[in-house]
Amino acid sequence: MIPRIMKQGRWAPWFYLLPALILMTVFILYPTIGTIRLSLLDSTSRHSAASTCSAGQPCWGVFENYRYALTNPAMLLALRNNALWLLLMVPGTIAGGLFFAILADRVRYESAAKAIIFLPTAISFIGAGIIWRFVYDVESGGGPQIGLLNAILVGLGGHPVTWLSNPAINNFSLMLVGVWLWGGFCMTILSAAIKGVNAEILEAARVDGANEWQVFWNIMYPTILPTIIVVTTTMAIIILKIFDVVFVMTNGNFGTEVIANRMFALIVTNAGQSTAIAVILIALTIPIMIFNIRRFRKEEAAR
């Protein structure tokens, strides 16, 4: 049921939409159609992908590149790692960002504190690579440790740890960089939402004797929920196509491969496989789309 208020003429909406739709069509939709086409062709983009099948091996015909993208060990590892990133980093950055935004809202040096958390967001990924080199560096010979973490470990009498090449921990090392980079993004957007919560209502609740926990869940949370959902959706998409951090720190070695790094590694030498990975990446957003449509409907029904 569409509210009457929204009926504003037949052509008017398109006047508002047109500039954005044209740009998105030219720069994203049109190339995506090409991407789908290429994903059905071989590495040279001249013949059907089916021609790369060899006798006696499993073959998915024209979808042969998708067989690579869904069954190759390197890709399976990448899919697993992306799932790990999603599970840990999305809640991590959002909870952390929200927690900090709420705390910072109450101190007088708020804008300085927020600037510090925001700072990594402003650093290019080349800069971030260098910064974290000085944290994770390991000296395996006799020399002094110039990486901060290992210097602390050795100073406490421990042994240096290879943070980036030990498959048991390196994914977590990379995720820490991710949280550091993206925490500021979540914090900034959520902070803007918190500013929108009516301060009088909050005060009134506190006067009535509600503790901070109740104030958060009963007043703040419902107001900023739409923003939390927006940030969750955005973070999920960002993590699905996470690339820079992995590329700069390990280039996918030592079991840290992720989907987008695989896609980029193949982009020149095997356009077919690379584009098939891209299409899979797009397909992975379908659940997120469905979730958002549902919420869209519910929200409109409520107003």
């Binding site: 998105m24 982009i267 990446l281 958002n292």
Partner: peptide, 15 residues
């Protein structure tokens, strides 16, 4: 609106 979400993930390298 749903399309907007799909468009967000399209890697720009493809374009």
């Amino acid at each position: 609106f749903a399309l907007l979400i799909g468009l967000q993930i399209v890697p720009l390298q493809m374009s």
